[in-house]
């Protein structure tokens, strides 16, 4: 299912994203790695992983990005890296790569592991396609909001830590302004929440339509469903910040981070499900 050329491209993509992440981390602690330019590593990583996706689609003959667990994870990684590239080329948040690249690498590692050890072809019916597209895009948005939430928390801690004398003076432009990070978090949660809700609804309709046979009678007690609902509930709270202003700022960022962990856990649960239950 996954050829050795695809594995090679996967490894090269991981290395490129890893180099970008390390370079961003070095810049964050005040060191420069002149050999590794972050825009270059990001572009190289994107080209590699996109080529990998195209090659995989060509090898299966199905030109769908979410046709199996391997392509689903690679698609998520490509979209997340593309989002980072968009932000960095528009109005950079230098430290974004430091946090986003490990998530991209994690998604690619999950693709490599589950795509080869436990390959699973997703069903091509209408409910399944809508469910997968909305759920994965929703999850991707939640991952982004979690990453920006972490950046918000670190930046806010640095800014508040100044008066306690515990932190070095923050450097302007390293994290991006709190206002922008909050905006990014809230926008991605709004977008992700709508898609994820649609993903959950189509998922339930699909189970109802197909019968509970594929996931068992107590499908609602499966890790995938419980974790997905928990993540959805967390982001529902984040989404309601305008009517609960006390949640603004750090509390919201912490909730987004919890949501990020739950989203990642949901994805792992999906990948670990018995064949047929994941899609």
């Amino acid at each position: 299912m996954v050829s050795s050329v695809q594995i090679l491209l996967l490894v090269l993509s991981i290395l490129a994203y890893l180099a970008g992440g390390l370079s961003a981390m070095a810049a964050l602690v005040g060191k420069k790695i002149p050999v590794i330019s972050r825009p270059v590593t990001l572009c190289v990583g994107l080209v590699m992983s996109l080529t990998l996706l195209l090659l995989h689609c060509a090898s299966t003959g199905l030109w769908q990005p979410l046709q199996n667990n391997f392509s689903a994870m690679v698609t998520m990684a490509v979209l997340l890296a593309a989002f980072v590239a968009y932000i960095q080329f528009r109005r950079p948040v230098p430290s974004l790569e430091w946090l986003a690249m490990p998530v991209v690498v994690l998604l690619l590692l999950m693709a490599g592991h589950f795509g080869t050890a436990k390959p699973e072809q997703y069903l091509p019916n209408a409910y399944s396609v809508v469910h997968r597209v909305t759920s994965y895009l929703g999850a991707l948005s939640f991952l982004i909001s979690g990453v920006t939430g972490i950046l918000y928390l670190i930046s806010a801690q640095n800014l508040r830590g100044r008066k306690k004398g515990g932190h070095a003076p923050p450097r302007p432009g390293v994290f991006g302004s709190l206002e922008r990070l909050e905006h990014l978090t809230y926008s991605s949660v709004t977008f992700g929440f709508a898609l994820f809700t649609l993903g959950l609804i189509t998922g339930f309709v699909w189970i109802h339509h197909e019968g509970a046979g594929r996931m068992g009678a107590s499908w609602y007690l499966s890790a995938k469903v419980i974790l997905a609902l928990a993540a959805w509930a967390i982001f529902a709270v984040v989404l309601h910040t305008p009517i609960a202003p006390r949640l603004r700022g750090r509390k919201n960022a912490i909730l987004s981070i919890v949501g990020l962990v739950l989203t990642l856990a949901t994805m792992v649960a999906v990948l670990l499900m018995p064949a047929g239950g994941a899609s």
Binding site: S155, L159, P170, P172, G173, F175, G176, S177, L178, E179, R180, H183
Partner: peptide
């Protein structure tokens, strides 16, 4: 002003 820029974008 540098600190303000870290808090506010616009």
């Amino acid at each position: 002003v540098e600190y303000a820029r870290q808090i506010f974008e616009n």
